[in-house]
Amino acid sequence: MREPPFKTILKPYGEALLTLAQTRPEIVCLGADLTRQTETDIFRDAIPDRFLNVGMAEANMISIAGAMARDGHVVFVNTFGVFCTRRCYDQIAMSVAYPNVNVKIVGFMPGLSSPGGPSHQAIEDVALMRALPNMLVVDPADAIEVRQAVQAVADHPGPVYLRLKRGENPLIFDDDHKFSLKKAHVIRSHKSSDVCIIASGMMLPSALAATRILESKGLTVSIVNVPVIKPLDAETIIPIVQQSGVVVTAENHTIFGGLGSAVAEAMAEEGVPVPLHRVGIRDVFAESGSREYLFSKYGLSTQNILNAVWAGLHLNTPVPVAPVHKTTPGEYAPV
């Protein structure tokens, strides 16, 4: 594991998809007027025959993708997360999820990572996609995971929603990191811990930062990275949360229907008597603004995780204050 502030790289998805498509002629790439923004300009330039810009017509794009997949292609559909979930939900249900075809829906700008306000902020995309039978939901945390996830979802014979950060992607994991569609990634676990933090996607850096602070205060912390929200790897997660004093989930998404809900469902069904605090967007549409401003204001910061732990453990001491990381251009740090 690397240390914050993290170095970043550009286009991990676009490069991984192109590399894969060069050896797999069945892969086609569809877009909806956001080619450079979805890193697919390099695919378009290298393999123009298998790249198709459908224009601003996401419903049409999804149904086209469904039919191409029925006919044997592996179709990657690319646009912003809001547009490929909210806008064409019936098409995804009927053309992709129900027939269980090989379409990978790639939605960029998850949660409050877009400065563009509620029209561009996919805060409930995980909930929408989780609700569809046959659909897998993947929310990678860094560029290493993104690269491996592209190969993994292409190998999975069925629909996947892949939720990707746009632009600079942090390098958090070492090169030998293993992404799995089946197993959650246990970063650290203890036989018995004060706190278990479960995080996905862009909240992983905050979860790591919070862990470090909590450990410096003498608490034992288990931390699990869950890039695959559906199917949730309850088999790995449940034994860890069972031995914890409090569970805190952290997701760049509404607290309804995403990672926190998935963990809550698994814990309830297993009868795990441990309090759960969900760090996420609390049933509200946000606004325009920088990531730092939005993550702080809408409850997606390291401080929010620390506050949740303190509340969950009923500690009377002052909550530790999360440090502000200084970054230079090309670096990424948690809020």
Binding site: V28, D49, R50, L52, A59, N60, I62, S63, I64, A65, G66, A67, M68, R70, D71, G72, H73, D90, Q91, M94, S95
Partner: peptide, 18 residues
């Protein structure tokens, strides 16, 4: 669900061309 068939047909036509 109505209104989706023509897009599907377009997908088949593109697939045949590929």
């Amino acid at each position: 669900s109505l209104g989706q068939g023509l897009s599907g047909a377009v997908g088949f036509a593109l697939s045949a061309r590929l």
